[in-house]
Nucleic acid binder design. Structure first.
Lengths: 238, 238
DNA sequence: AACATTATCATTGCATGCAATCATATGCCT
DNA sequence: AGGCATATGATTGCATGCAATGATAATGTT
């Protein structure tokens, strides 16, 4: 028996495609999003496009004006830091809840598996940008495992909103001599993040709620400050 | 010059009307929401109704199934407590941010005004249900003032989602002899809440971030526990 | 009678037409 | 020429028709 044919409406697929166009940088902050143009480009009619844009607006990715349509939201540094503040708070809450109410053995196994695969990746020789991409995937998986285990839909959707942002910090970091040391700095940062992950899992297993919460908050906070430094370095004007 | 004629689309007004129908209890959890029926009832077409339902679904008020439409989400006790967990965490964050980065004098004045009006209401004789309604309004205003001052859109929308719920706890509390003492208990609870408000403003003015955060968390937590007690008393089965 | 299968119907998902509104360009007056 | 009013065009907001899908009732089979 076919379990359940995963059916998606055009509105849903359109939402994801437009979201990807934004977070990938294909659509840049400030760009207007005209319904007809997007519809032609995606091969659907204006109705699912409008539905998608409404959802993305509700998520905070788009600006909207009555009779003026949608545009990719302009993210200044403050907005980015705001998003991180909410993320670190909510993900911290997730860790506290998990630690206090107990974590399922299956989730522990998945977390341990994630930590193991990440360790193999991060502490092997020959660091590369492909490996960095794989680490980013593993990092996302780690955070998602915790969110799922927390099992709180308000928490999950709040983090999701605060997480989907235009790629202000994924841009190429200038073209001067710093290019050679950047990969190494990234590796160092990722290894630090992995150590955070290890200790967070440890605290959760021990039922240490506030320790797990605080460490997750600090963990995300370090990403926040890294993003801040990168942006302030790229745009000294503000 | 007319400042700016507040223009609202039918989709927006429909969203608010349907939301009110849900939080007021006119539409009960589990009810299906058929587009045509709602459209007739509200005097619009199905398009703005569908937009409204999509938004309310994104907010977490509605369930949705592809080709099956929307229905008012069933809120069990766990979901309600989840919403409170997010609220107390985010509103706590708001207080911390305000205290740490400093609060505008204008906002302080508005908060003080709110506290004054609430005091006049809560500590005067002849407590009544109309006065209770006015207190609820003042309480909402207090929390909104803080959210606005925090000036973080992710925070604001997260709290908004966690706040719009069906009226599980606004129901009439049974019909036995306890009816006579309920109002007095409500007054006592409201007075306690007001004292929390006073101390939160005090902490914010002194720049005591973590104290403000903790007190706000405890303040919302007491509402959470009150809701839990009421529901568990009403529905001993769960 | 119970179950599976088919047929009927209601409701959704989507496309599209039209009117209302906003943005831009043109003409007018001082 | 500069500022204001008007007109044109583009784009949105909304209504509605139609096909696809799910729910339900009717039918047939064992």
């Amino acid at each position: 028996m076919p379990k359940s044919k995963t059916v998606l409406t055009r509105a849903q697929t359109t939402t994801e495609r437009v979201r990807q166009m934004i977070v990938s940088g294909e659509l840049q902050p400030g760009d207007r999003l005209q319904a007809q143009m997007l519809a032609d480009r995606l091969g659907v009619s204006r109705t699912p496009v409008n539905d998608a844009l409404a959802v993305l607006h509700k998520e905070g990715l788009l600006d909207y004006g009555v009779n003026r349509g949608y545009g990719v939201r302009r993210f200044d540094l403050c907005t980015l830091l705001d998003a991180f503040d909410v993320r670190l708070t909510l993900e911290g809450l997730a860790c506290r809840l998990i630690a206090e109410r107990g974590v399922r053995a299956e989730t522990v196994a998945q977390l341990r598996s994630n930590l193991g695969r990440s360790e193999d990746l991060l502490f092997a020789p020959n660091w590369s940008s492909e490996k960095h991409a794989r680490w980013r995937q593993l990092n996302l998986e780690f955070h998602d495992l915790l969110l799922e285990e927390a099992n709180n839909s308000y928490l999950t959707s709040g983090v999701a909103s605060a997480r989907s942002l235009p790629p202000i910090l994924d841009r190429t970091h200038g073209s001067d001599a710093t290019d050679e040391i950047w990969p190494l700095l990234e590796l160092k940062f990722s290894q630090d993040a992995w150590r955070d992950h290890v200790r967070i899992v440890e605290a959760i297993e021990l039922g240490q709620g506030s320790r797990a919460e605080n460490m997750m908050k600090e963990h995300v906070f370090s990403s926040r400050e890294k993003a801040r430094r990168i942006i302030q370095q790229l745009l000294p004007s503000g």
